[in-house]
Each structure stands twice: as structure tokens, then as C-alpha cells.
Amino acid sequence: MRTIQMTLDDNLVKAVDRVSKELHTSRSAFTRKALQDALARYKNEQLELKHRRGYEQNPVADDEFSVWEDEQAWGDE
């Protein structure tokens, strides 16, 4: 691991310290988890954007999925 220095607002540090204490963890561990979650959320947003752009460039054809309709077994027949 690596030690870094960050500048944070006093209120943010107090809130992190309060929640870290409630969770029985350290400020560093809490911050690591928050940053990991933020990076994962960013990656997911980028994948969704890529997916959306792909469908904008190549929209679904009206009959694209109809070939599977006869294959579906819903158990209601």
C-alpha cells in the first residue's frame, strides 16, 4: 500500500470519522472502500454508456428477437 496526502473539508472528515467509528473501521479503510465503490460505479456507468451508444448506432431490428419466440416455454399451454 501507499500513503497519500489529501485535502478534505473539516465537515467531511468529521462525517467519515463518525461513520468509521460506527462501522468499527479506520478512516483509511473507509476511504479505500468508498474510492473502490466510486471506481466500480464509474466503470459500470462507462459500460452502460458504451452499450447505449452501440444501440444508438445499431438499433434493434423489429424482427431481431422474434426467431426465439417459438422457443420460449412459459408453461401456460
Rank of each mutant, 00 (worst) to 15 (best):
M1N: 12
T3G: 05
T3K: 08
I4M: 07
I4R: 01
I4S: 04
Q5E: 10
M6L: 15
M6A: 14
M6C: 15
M6F: 13
M6T: 11
M6E: 15
T7I: 09
T7S: 02
L8M: 05
L8C: 04
L8R: 04
D9L: 15
D9H: 07
D10F: 06
N11M: 12
N11Q: 09
L12V: 12
V13H: 02
A15P: 01
V16S: 12
V16N: 13
D17Y: 08
R18E: 09
V19N: 11
V19S: 12
V19F: 04
S20C: 02
S20M: 00
K21N: 12
E22I: 00
E22R: 07
E22F: 01
L23T: 00
L23Q: 05
H24R: 09
H24A: 13
T25Y: 08
T25S: 09
S26M: 08
S26T: 10
S28W: 04
A29N: 03
F30A: 06
F30L: 07
F30C: 03
T31Q: 05
T31I: 14
R32L: 06
K33H: 11
K33T: 15
K33L: 13
A34Y: 01
L35R: 07
L35M: 07
L35C: 07
Q36T: 07
Q36W: 04
D37P: 10
A38K: 09
A38L: 14
A40P: 14
A40R: 15
A40Q: 13
R41M: 15
Y42E: 15
Y42M: 09
K43V: 03
N44H: 12
N44W: 12
E45R: 05
E45D: 13
Q46M: 12
L47R: 12
L47P: 00
L47C: 02
L49Q: 13
K50F: 07
K50G: 08
R52M: 01
R53F: 08
R53T: 08
R53N: 07
G54A: 00
Y55N: 01
Y55P: 09
E56Q: 11
Q57H: 07
Q57I: 11
P59S: 01
V60L: 06
V60Y: 03
V60K: 02
V60T: 08
A61M: 11
D62L: 11
D62N: 14
E64A: 04
E64H: 02
E64S: 00
F65V: 05
V67K: 09
V67Y: 11
W68Q: 08
E69A: 03
E69R: 00
E69P: 02
D70Y: 12
D70I: 11
D70S: 15
D70R: 15
E71T: 11
Q72S: 04
Q72N: 06
Q72C: 08
W74C: 05
W74D: 01
W74Y: 03
D76L: 13
D76F: 04
D76R: 06
E77S: 11
E77M: 06
E77P: 04
